[in-house]
């Protein structure tokens, strides 16, 4: 019924002699929440970078949202990133000299034009209406991650990528962030691909795949 948003065929990524991702075949239908698990160095971040258009595959085909990533130029990749994906990082990566709302506006700036009212609304939506004018250093880890989420979804991406988004958070904040993601997904209907090594976090997804040493070793569907 639903269309496929991510489709890989024999996707490979080598860094010199090291093979970070062995030929991988993966299909993600639109709207799915996919968790990717594995040890560090298992190639899950590499996969995420490839999906987000931050990196290019060494071999194999990769289609995201109908776009052939191999065929895109450097500027085409940048356009793809701003129009199609939102990325949440483990280390938040907020710009230190901008306030929360300005950090969100930065994403608007690269996408089209900055719009402060809309950025404010987005922050209110993630429950940060009271901390609009605070710098990242004045925010807690959970709050910073919520700014990141607001920034990732501000341009209405089709695909939300999470690179261990809860890796630096305590249990309570993790729960809050996951809850928030679930709510937002229900409203915006984006696809989520989330890398994690926390089985509890992975369990929020519809499906979990396990990578080991660059190979897809197991795949399981979450009940419910």
């Amino acid at each position: 019924m639903s269309t496929t948003i991510i489709e890989t065929g024999g996707l490979t990524r080598n860094y010199g002699d090291i093979c970070a991702l062995k030929p991988l075949d993966l299909k993600v239908p639109e709207g799915e929440w996919l968790s990717v698990m594995g040890h560090s160095g298992s190639g899950k971040s590499t996969l995420l970078n490839l999906l987000g258009g931050l990196d290019r595959p060494s071999n194999g085909s990769l289609r995201v949202g109908g776009e052939d990533m191999q065929g895109l130029t450097e500027d085409g990749l940048a356009r793809f990133r701003r129009e199609f994906v939102g990325i949440i990082f483990q280390q938040h990566h907020l710009i230190p000299y901008l306030t929360a709302v300005e950090n969100v506006m930065m994403a608007q700036y690269f996408h089209s034009v900055p719009d402060e009212a809309e950025a404010r609304l987005a922050l209110e939506r993630v429950g940060l209406g009271h901390r609009l004018k605070n710098r990242p250093s004045e925010l807690s880890g959970g709050e910073q991650q919520r700014v990141c989420i607001a920034r990732a979804i501000i341009n209405s991406p089709k695909l939300l990528l999470g690179d261990e988004p809860t890796g630096n958070l305590d249990h309570k904040s993790t729960l809050m962030v996951m809850e928030l993601l679930k709510e937002l997904r229900a409203e915006e209907r984006f696809t989520i691909v989330m890398v994690t090594h926390n089985p509890e976090v992975a369990a929020w997804g519809d499906r979990t795949i396990y990578l080991d040493d660059g190979i897809l070793v197991r795949e399981e569907r979450t009940r419910s």
Binding site: Q108, H111, S112, V113, D115, E118, L121, A122, I154, N155, S156
Partner: peptide
């Protein structure tokens, strides 16, 4: 209604 689309249209116009 959607902010991103609105902004993109505006940017294209400019």
């Amino acid at each position: 209604r959607q902010g991103a689309q609105r902004r993109r249209l505006l940017a294209t116009g400019i």
